[in-house]
C-alpha cells in the first residue's frame, strides 16, 4: 500500500468519524432543544454536514468506482430538499399556533400577521 493510499484511508476515516459525531450531536440537539423551530436547526445543519462528511468518507474508499456519482446525488438532493421540508414544518407549526411564544425574544412575523389582520389590503 502506497503512502498516498494510506493518507486517503486516514482522511476517509476522519470524515466518517466526523460525520458520525455530527449526526450524534444533531440527535442530542433534537432531544435537548425545547420546541420544533429550534429542533429544525439540528435537522438543517449538523445533520447535512454530517451526511456530507460520511458520503465523502465512503466516496474516498470507493474512489475509482464510478458508483461515486450516486453519492453526489444523495448530497445534492439532501441539500435541496431538507431546507424545503424544514420550511414547511416551520410554517405549519407557526400557522397552527404551536410555537412556544415564551421562547421567542423577538417575533416580527406575529407583528406582521397582526398587521395583516387589522388591514387586509395585501394578499
Amino acid at each position: 500500500m502506497s503512502t498516498m493510499e494510506t493518507v486517503l484511508e486516514w482522511v476517509a476515516l476522519g470524515c466518517l468519524l466526523g460525520g458520525a459525531l455530527l449526526s450524534f450531536a444533531a440527535g442530542v440537539g433534537l432531544v435537548r432543544f425545547p420546541d420544533l423551530l429550534s429542533r429544525l436547526h439540528t435537522a438543517a445543519k449538523p445533520q447535512i454536514l454530517g451526511l456530507i462528511l460520511i458520503l465523502i468518507g465512503i466516496g474516498l474508499r470507493l474512489a475509482p468506482d464510478p458508483q461515486v456519482g450516486i453519492l453526489l446525488l444523495v448530497a445534492l438532493f439532501q441539500l435541496l430538499t431538507v431546507p424545503v421540508a424544514a420550511h414547511i414544518a416551520g410554517r405549519v407549526t407557526y400557522r397552527t399556533s404551536r410555537v412556544r411564544r415564551d421562547l421567542l425574544v423577538i417575533d416580527e412575523l406575529r407583528d406582521q400577521l397582526d398587521e395583516d389582520k387589522a388591514g387586509p389590503e395585501q394578499r
Binding site: A25, V28, G29, P34, T42, P46, G50, Y94, L104, V105
Partner: peptide
C-alpha cells in the same frame, strides 16, 4: 453554522431562546 448548533446543543442546563425576524 453546524458548530454553532452543536455548541448550543451541548450547552446543558441552558434553554436556548430564539427570535423570528423579518
Amino acid at each position: 453554522a453546524s458548530a454553532r448548533v452543536v455548541r448550543t446543543a451541548f450547552a446543558f442546563g441552558r434553554t436556548p431562546r430564539s427570535s423570528v425576524i423579518a
